[in-house]
Protein backbone atom coordinates (compact mmCIF):
# COMPACT_ATOMS: atom_id res chain seq x y z
CA UNK A 1 0.00 0.00 0.00
CA UNK A 2 2.80 2.37 0.97
CA UNK A 3 4.84 1.36 -2.10
CA UNK A 4 1.87 2.00 -4.36
CA UNK A 5 1.39 5.41 -2.81
CA UNK A 6 5.06 6.28 -3.30
CA UNK A 7 4.94 5.10 -6.89
CA UNK A 8 1.98 7.36 -7.58
CA UNK A 9 3.82 10.26 -5.90
CA UNK A 10 6.91 9.60 -8.03
CA UNK A 11 4.87 9.50 -11.23
CA UNK A 12 3.14 12.71 -10.21
CA UNK A 13 6.47 14.32 -9.45
CA UNK A 14 7.81 13.50 -12.91
CA UNK A 15 4.57 14.43 -14.62
CA UNK A 16 4.51 17.89 -13.12
CA UNK A 17 8.25 18.57 -13.43
CA UNK A 18 9.40 16.81 -16.58
CA UNK A 19 9.35 19.90 -18.83
CA UNK A 20 11.66 21.74 -16.47
CA UNK A 21 13.97 18.75 -16.16
CA UNK A 22 14.09 18.33 -19.93
CA UNK A 23 15.05 21.96 -20.40
CA UNK A 24 17.77 21.61 -17.79
CA UNK A 25 19.05 18.27 -19.06
CA UNK A 26 21.58 19.51 -21.68
CA UNK A 27 23.09 21.95 -19.19
CA UNK A 28 22.97 19.34 -16.42
CA UNK A 29 24.78 16.74 -18.54
CA UNK A 30 27.33 19.33 -19.64
CA UNK A 31 28.01 20.41 -16.07
CA UNK A 32 28.21 16.82 -14.87
CA UNK A 33 30.55 15.57 -17.59
CA UNK A 34 32.74 18.60 -18.15
CA UNK A 35 32.81 20.19 -14.70
CA UNK A 36 31.70 18.05 -11.75
CA UNK A 37 33.32 14.76 -12.80
CA UNK A 38 36.69 16.38 -13.65
CA UNK A 39 36.54 18.29 -10.33
CA UNK A 40 35.94 15.08 -8.36
CA UNK A 41 38.57 13.26 -10.42
CA UNK A 42 41.18 15.93 -9.79
CA UNK A 43 40.45 15.73 -6.06
CA UNK A 44 40.96 11.95 -6.15
CA UNK A 45 44.11 12.31 -8.27
CA UNK A 46 45.57 14.77 -5.80
CA UNK A 47 46.02 11.90 -3.35
CA UNK A 48 47.70 9.66 -5.92
CA UNK A 49 51.47 9.90 -5.60
CA UNK A 50 53.23 9.98 -8.99
CA UNK A 51 50.01 9.62 -10.94
CA UNK A 52 50.75 10.12 -14.64
CA UNK A 53 47.43 9.18 -16.20
CA UNK A 54 48.36 5.52 -16.24
CA UNK A 55 49.54 4.33 -12.85
CA UNK A 56 50.45 5.72 -9.45
CA UNK A 57 52.76 4.62 -6.64
CA UNK A 58 50.55 5.04 -3.57
CA UNK A 59 47.58 6.76 -1.94
CA UNK A 60 48.92 9.42 0.39
CA UNK A 61 49.30 13.15 1.05
CA UNK A 62 52.75 13.40 -0.52
CA UNK A 63 51.58 15.66 -3.36
CA UNK A 64 50.40 18.19 -0.78
CA UNK A 65 53.51 17.78 1.35
CA UNK A 66 55.82 18.19 -1.66
CA UNK A 67 54.32 21.59 -2.42
CA UNK A 68 55.46 22.94 0.92
CA UNK A 69 58.79 21.12 1.08
CA UNK A 70 60.82 19.97 -1.96
CA UNK A 71 58.99 22.13 -4.49
CA UNK A 72 58.44 25.11 -2.19
CA UNK A 73 60.98 27.20 -4.09
CA UNK A 74 58.99 27.07 -7.34
CA UNK A 75 55.58 27.10 -5.67
CA UNK A 76 56.38 30.21 -3.62
CA UNK A 77 58.00 31.97 -6.58
CA UNK A 78 55.02 31.37 -8.86
CA UNK A 79 52.58 32.26 -6.09
CA UNK A 80 54.34 35.54 -5.27
CA UNK A 81 54.46 36.43 -8.97
CA UNK A 82 50.73 35.75 -9.18
CA UNK A 83 49.93 37.82 -6.10
CA UNK A 84 52.07 40.69 -7.37
CA UNK A 85 50.35 40.50 -10.72
CA UNK A 86 46.91 40.47 -9.08
CA UNK A 87 47.68 43.33 -6.67
CA UNK A 88 48.66 45.64 -9.52
CA UNK A 89 46.44 44.42 -12.35
CA UNK A 90 43.14 44.41 -10.42
CA UNK A 91 43.08 48.12 -9.45
CA UNK A 92 44.74 49.12 -12.70
CA UNK A 93 42.14 47.30 -14.77
CA UNK A 94 39.20 48.47 -12.64
CA UNK A 95 40.22 52.12 -12.52
CA UNK A 96 41.11 52.43 -16.20
CA UNK A 97 37.93 50.69 -17.34
CA UNK A 98 35.86 52.76 -14.88
CA UNK A 99 37.20 56.07 -16.18
CA UNK A 100 36.93 54.87 -19.75
CA UNK A 101 33.27 54.08 -19.11
CA UNK A 102 32.76 57.53 -17.59
CA UNK A 103 34.31 59.08 -20.69
CA UNK A 104 32.07 57.24 -23.11
CA UNK A 105 28.96 57.58 -20.92
CA UNK A 106 28.12 60.94 -22.40
CA UNK A 107 25.70 62.04 -25.05
CA UNK A 108 28.42 63.49 -27.29
CA UNK A 109 28.17 62.93 -31.00
CA UNK A 110 30.12 59.90 -32.19
CA UNK A 111 30.65 58.47 -28.70
CA UNK A 112 29.08 55.17 -29.79
CA UNK A 113 31.90 54.68 -32.27
CA UNK A 114 34.39 55.04 -29.42
CA UNK A 115 32.49 52.48 -27.35
CA UNK A 116 32.74 50.03 -30.25
CA UNK A 117 36.42 50.83 -30.79
CA UNK A 118 37.30 50.30 -27.12
CA UNK A 119 35.33 47.08 -26.97
CA UNK A 120 36.67 45.67 -30.25
CA UNK A 121 39.92 44.18 -28.78
CA UNK A 122 37.80 42.08 -26.38
CA UNK A 123 36.35 40.24 -29.37
CA UNK A 124 39.83 39.09 -30.42
CA UNK A 125 40.72 35.71 -28.85
CA UNK A 126 43.25 35.96 -26.01
CA UNK A 127 45.70 33.66 -27.81
CA UNK A 128 45.68 35.85 -30.89
CA UNK A 129 46.03 38.96 -28.73
CA UNK A 130 49.01 37.41 -26.93
CA UNK A 131 50.75 36.60 -30.20
CA UNK A 132 50.03 40.08 -31.56
CA UNK A 133 51.56 41.75 -28.51
CA UNK A 134 54.54 39.43 -28.57
CA UNK A 135 55.16 40.66 -32.08
CA UNK A 136 54.51 44.32 -31.27
CA UNK A 137 56.86 44.18 -28.26
CA UNK A 138 59.64 42.54 -30.31
CA UNK A 139 62.98 44.07 -29.41
CA UNK A 140 64.30 44.70 -32.88
CA UNK A 141 61.31 44.55 -35.18
CA UNK A 142 58.44 45.31 -32.79
CA UNK A 143 56.37 48.32 -33.76
CA UNK A 144 56.93 50.08 -30.41
CA UNK A 145 60.69 49.84 -30.61
CA UNK A 146 60.65 50.95 -34.22
CA UNK A 147 58.74 54.07 -33.15
CA UNK A 148 61.22 54.60 -30.29
CA UNK A 149 64.05 54.15 -32.80
CA UNK A 150 62.61 56.83 -35.08
CA UNK A 151 62.72 59.38 -32.25
CA UNK A 152 66.21 58.26 -31.24
CA UNK A 153 65.34 56.31 -28.08
CA UNK A 154 67.08 52.99 -27.52
CA UNK A 155 64.92 49.85 -27.65
CA UNK A 156 62.86 48.89 -24.61
CA UNK A 157 63.32 45.20 -23.76
CA UNK A 158 59.64 44.42 -22.90
CA UNK A 159 59.41 40.60 -22.53
CA UNK A 160 63.13 40.11 -23.25
CA UNK A 161 64.18 41.23 -19.78
CA UNK A 162 63.06 39.91 -16.41
CA UNK A 163 62.87 43.44 -14.97
CA UNK A 164 60.47 44.78 -17.60
CA UNK A 165 58.38 41.68 -18.31
CA UNK A 166 55.64 42.21 -15.75
CA UNK A 167 55.30 45.89 -16.58
CA UNK A 168 54.87 44.89 -20.23
CA UNK A 169 52.06 42.51 -19.28
CA UNK A 170 50.23 45.33 -17.48
CA UNK A 171 50.54 47.55 -20.55
CA UNK A 172 49.34 44.66 -22.70
CA UNK A 173 46.32 44.07 -20.48
CA UNK A 174 45.09 47.63 -21.03
CA UNK A 175 44.21 46.39 -24.51
CA UNK A 176 41.18 44.59 -23.11
CA UNK A 177 39.80 47.13 -20.63
CA UNK A 178 36.82 47.50 -22.99
CA UNK A 179 35.30 44.39 -21.40
CA UNK A 180 35.18 46.06 -17.97
CA UNK A 181 34.01 49.30 -19.59
CA UNK A 182 30.84 47.64 -20.90
CA UNK A 183 29.97 46.37 -17.41
CA UNK A 184 30.46 49.82 -15.91
CA UNK A 185 28.33 51.34 -18.64
CA UNK A 186 25.50 48.96 -17.87
CA UNK A 187 25.77 49.95 -14.18
CA UNK A 188 25.74 53.66 -15.04
CA UNK A 189 22.71 53.25 -17.28
CA UNK A 190 20.78 51.72 -14.38
CA UNK A 191 21.24 54.78 -12.18
CA UNK A 192 18.05 56.76 -12.09
CA UNK A 193 18.50 60.25 -13.56
CA UNK A 194 16.32 61.67 -10.79
CA UNK A 195 19.24 61.34 -8.39
CA UNK A 196 21.42 63.60 -10.55
CA UNK A 197 18.54 66.08 -10.86
CA UNK A 198 18.26 66.07 -7.08
CA UNK A 199 21.97 66.87 -6.81
CA UNK A 200 21.53 69.78 -9.24
CA UNK A 201 18.56 71.11 -7.26
CA UNK A 202 20.72 70.95 -4.13
CA UNK A 203 23.30 73.04 -5.97
CA UNK A 204 25.80 70.25 -6.62
CA UNK A 205 27.82 70.05 -9.82
CA UNK A 206 29.08 67.15 -11.93
CA UNK A 207 31.78 66.27 -9.45
CA UNK A 208 29.26 66.04 -6.60
CA UNK A 209 27.04 63.86 -8.81
CA UNK A 210 29.95 61.56 -9.53
CA UNK A 211 31.06 61.42 -5.90
CA UNK A 212 27.68 61.09 -4.21
CA UNK A 213 25.60 59.32 -6.84
CA UNK A 214 27.66 57.52 -9.48
CA UNK A 215 30.18 55.88 -7.16
CA UNK A 216 27.74 54.76 -4.41
CA UNK A 217 25.17 53.56 -6.94
CA UNK A 218 27.74 51.54 -8.86
CA UNK A 219 29.27 49.85 -5.79
CA UNK A 220 27.44 46.54 -6.50
CA UNK A 221 29.11 46.49 -9.91
CA UNK A 222 32.44 47.57 -8.37
CA UNK A 223 32.14 44.68 -5.93
CA UNK A 224 31.20 42.22 -8.69
CA UNK A 225 34.15 43.38 -10.80
CA UNK A 226 36.53 43.16 -7.83
CA UNK A 227 35.46 39.57 -7.17
CA UNK A 228 35.63 38.52 -10.82
CA UNK A 229 38.94 40.23 -11.56
CA UNK A 230 40.47 38.87 -8.34
CA UNK A 231 39.59 35.32 -9.36
CA UNK A 232 40.58 35.98 -12.99
CA UNK A 233 43.91 37.57 -12.07
CA UNK A 234 44.87 34.80 -9.70
CA UNK A 235 44.11 32.24 -12.39
CA UNK A 236 46.03 34.18 -15.05
CA UNK A 237 47.89 31.92 -17.48
CA UNK A 238 47.99 34.13 -20.54
CA UNK A 239 51.80 34.18 -20.45
CA UNK A 240 51.74 30.72 -22.03
CA UNK A 241 50.90 32.34 -25.35
CA UNK A 242 53.57 35.02 -25.51
CA UNK A 243 56.23 34.72 -22.81
CA UNK A 244 59.57 33.03 -23.53
CA UNK A 245 60.79 29.97 -21.67
CA UNK A 246 57.55 28.01 -21.97
CA UNK A 247 55.45 30.86 -20.60
CA UNK A 248 57.68 31.41 -17.56
CA UNK A 249 59.46 34.52 -18.87
CA UNK A 250 63.13 35.25 -18.38
CA UNK A 251 64.37 34.22 -14.96
CA UNK A 252 60.83 33.03 -14.18
CA UNK A 253 59.68 36.64 -14.01
CA UNK A 254 56.27 35.72 -15.47
CA UNK A 255 55.97 32.31 -13.87
CA UNK A 256 52.37 32.35 -12.64
CA UNK A 257 50.81 29.73 -10.39
CA UNK A 258 48.30 28.63 -13.08
CA UNK A 259 51.21 28.21 -15.51
CA UNK A 260 52.93 26.00 -12.94
CA UNK A 261 49.81 23.84 -12.65
CA UNK A 262 49.77 23.51 -16.45
CA UNK A 263 53.49 22.72 -16.66
CA UNK A 264 53.33 20.08 -13.94
CA UNK A 265 50.06 18.41 -14.89
CA UNK A 266 50.11 18.62 -18.68
CA UNK A 267 53.70 19.17 -19.84
CA UNK A 268 55.38 16.93 -17.28
CA UNK A 269 52.40 14.58 -17.06
CA UNK A 270 52.41 14.63 -13.24
CA UNK A 271 48.64 14.79 -13.00
CA UNK A 272 48.48 13.94 -9.29
CA UNK A 273 50.77 16.77 -8.28
CA UNK A 274 49.12 19.23 -10.67
CA UNK A 275 45.74 18.36 -9.12
CA UNK A 276 47.07 18.97 -5.60
CA UNK A 277 48.45 22.35 -6.69
CA UNK A 278 45.05 23.21 -8.15
CA UNK A 279 43.13 22.23 -5.02
CA UNK A 280 45.35 24.27 -2.73
CA UNK A 281 44.90 27.18 -5.09
CA UNK A 282 41.14 26.71 -5.03
CA UNK A 283 41.21 26.98 -1.23
CA UNK A 284 43.32 30.16 -1.41
CA UNK A 285 40.95 31.74 -3.95
CA UNK A 286 37.92 30.68 -1.89
CA UNK A 287 39.45 32.26 1.25
CA UNK A 288 40.17 35.52 -0.55
CA UNK A 289 36.62 35.56 -1.94
CA UNK A 290 35.16 34.96 1.53
CA UNK A 291 37.28 37.82 2.93
CA UNK A 292 36.04 40.09 0.14
CA UNK A 293 32.43 39.21 0.94
CA UNK A 294 32.98 39.68 4.67
CA UNK A 295 34.37 43.16 4.06
CA UNK A 296 31.67 44.22 1.61
CA UNK A 297 29.70 46.53 3.90
CA UNK A 298 30.68 49.44 1.67
CA UNK A 299 28.49 48.03 -1.12
CA UNK A 300 25.24 49.97 -1.50
CA UNK A 301 22.31 47.75 -2.48
CA UNK A 302 19.60 50.37 -2.06
CA UNK A 303 17.57 51.46 0.93
CA UNK A 304 15.57 48.23 1.26
CA UNK A 305 18.64 45.98 1.16
Amino acid sequence: MIMEKKSIQLRKFFKTNYTGWLFNLPLGIGLLVFTFIPVICSFVYSFMWKYDGFTFDAWNFKNYIQMFTADWDEVSRSFLNTVLYAIISIPLGLITSYFLALLVNTGLKGVKAFRVLYYLPVTIPAVVGGLLWKDMFGQTYGIFNRILGVVGISPFPFFSNAKTSLFSVFVMNLWSVGGGMILWLSAFKNIDKQYYEAVQIEGGGRWAGFLHITIPMSTPMIFYNVIMSTIGSLQYNGTLTFAPNDGRGWDDSLYMYAVKIYQDAIKSGNIGYGSALAWVFLIVIALITVILFKTSKWVFYGEEA
Binding site: L32, V33, F36, I37, I40, C41, M48, Y51, F54, F56
Partner: peptide, 12 residues
Protein backbone atom coordinates in the same frame (compact mmCIF):
# COMPACT_ATOMS: atom_id res chain seq x y z
CA UNK B 1 27.26 10.93 -10.47
CA UNK B 2 29.61 9.11 -8.11
CA UNK B 3 29.66 5.95 -10.24
CA UNK B 4 30.42 7.97 -13.37
CA UNK B 5 33.14 9.86 -11.53
CA UNK B 6 34.65 6.60 -10.24
CA UNK B 7 34.74 5.15 -13.76
CA UNK B 8 36.16 8.37 -15.16
CA UNK B 9 38.85 8.64 -12.49
CA UNK B 10 40.09 5.07 -12.61
CA UNK B 11 43.72 4.75 -13.75
CA UNK B 12 44.21 2.65 -16.84
Amino acid sequence: FLCTAAVGCAPR
